[in-house]
Amino acid sequence: MVRWSEDLQQYEEYGLRARRGGWVIDSGGAVIAVLTVGWKSPRTIAGRNWPVYLEYLVTDEHHRSGGHGSRLVRYAIQELARQGCQGVYLKVFKGDDGWESALRFWERHGWTEHCDLTTDRHIVMTKEIASAPPP
């Protein structure tokens, strides 16, 4: 959790100029789910630039299957849309425990797998985001 804390601290200090951003769900002061993104040099996937990389989505093992990850993903996507982001990419690492469940999770949330970028180590997925109308 130290790395996520550092990412969140940087986001608080630098706002939208931060290289990373994150959202948490907590219960009684304990963090139960974390989602972080990184603004990187754009990656070209399927002929389009994707500047935001979803780095982590982790839910405490005692709180899994409670919908916290889904809720966090929906909220993060809404916030990224509000900030003008039009798409996000991620990697599902095949060596991670539960990677097949993770792949199904992202597919259920409308992420697209890019088979041409799939390797022995990871699967690249993208999510189109419709920008929110200006306030």
Rank of each mutant, 00 (worst) to 15 (best):
M1G: 15
M1S: 15
V2M: 12
V2Y: 14
R3V: 13
R3L: 13
W4P: 03
W4T: 15
W4L: 08
S5E: 14
E6F: 09
L8E: 10
L8I: 09
Y11P: 04
Y11E: 10
E12I: 05
E12K: 15
E13G: 10
G15D: 13
L16H: 14
R17V: 09
R17Y: 09
R17T: 11
A18N: 08
R19N: 15
G22R: 05
G22Q: 04
W23L: 13
V24I: 15
I25C: 07
S27W: 09
S27Y: 07
G28E: 10
G28P: 06
G29V: 04
A30F: 11
A30P: 02
A30R: 14
I32E: 06
I32Y: 03
V34W: 02
V34S: 05
V34P: 04
V34Y: 02
L35Q: 01
V37L: 04
W39I: 10
K40D: 11
S41H: 12
R43Q: 01
T44F: 01
T44L: 02
A46S: 15
A46W: 00
A46P: 05
G47L: 03
R48C: 07
N49H: 13
P51W: 06
V52E: 07
V52T: 12
Y53G: 01
Y53I: 00
Y56P: 00
Y56E: 15
V58R: 07
T59D: 05
D60G: 08
D60R: 10
E61C: 04
H62L: 12
H63M: 12
R64H: 06
G67T: 07
H68Q: 09
H68N: 09
S70Y: 03
V73F: 08
Y75F: 10
Y75E: 15
A76E: 00
A76G: 00
I77L: 14
Q78T: 05
E79A: 14
A81C: 06
G84I: 01
G84A: 07
G84E: 06
C85F: 00
V88F: 00
V88Q: 02
Y89C: 00
L90E: 02
L90A: 02
L90S: 05
V92Q: 01
V92E: 02
V92S: 04
D96A: 13
D96E: 15
D97C: 07
W99S: 08
A102W: 00
A102F: 03
L103D: 12
L103K: 14
L103S: 11
L103C: 12
L103I: 02
R104V: 10
F105Y: 11
W106T: 01
W106G: 04
W106P: 01
E107R: 13
R108Q: 13
R108Y: 07
G110T: 08
G110N: 09
W111I: 03
W111E: 07
W111P: 08
W111F: 15
W111Q: 09
E113Q: 14
H114N: 08
H114Y: 10
C115V: 11
D116G: 05
L117P: 05
T118E: 11
T119W: 02
T119H: 03
T119C: 03
D120F: 13
H122Q: 12
H122W: 13
I123A: 04
V124D: 03
V124N: 00
V124H: 00
V124P: 02
T126Q: 01
T126M: 04
T126Y: 01
E128W: 11
E128S: 12
E128I: 01
S131V: 10
S131D: 10
P133E: 14
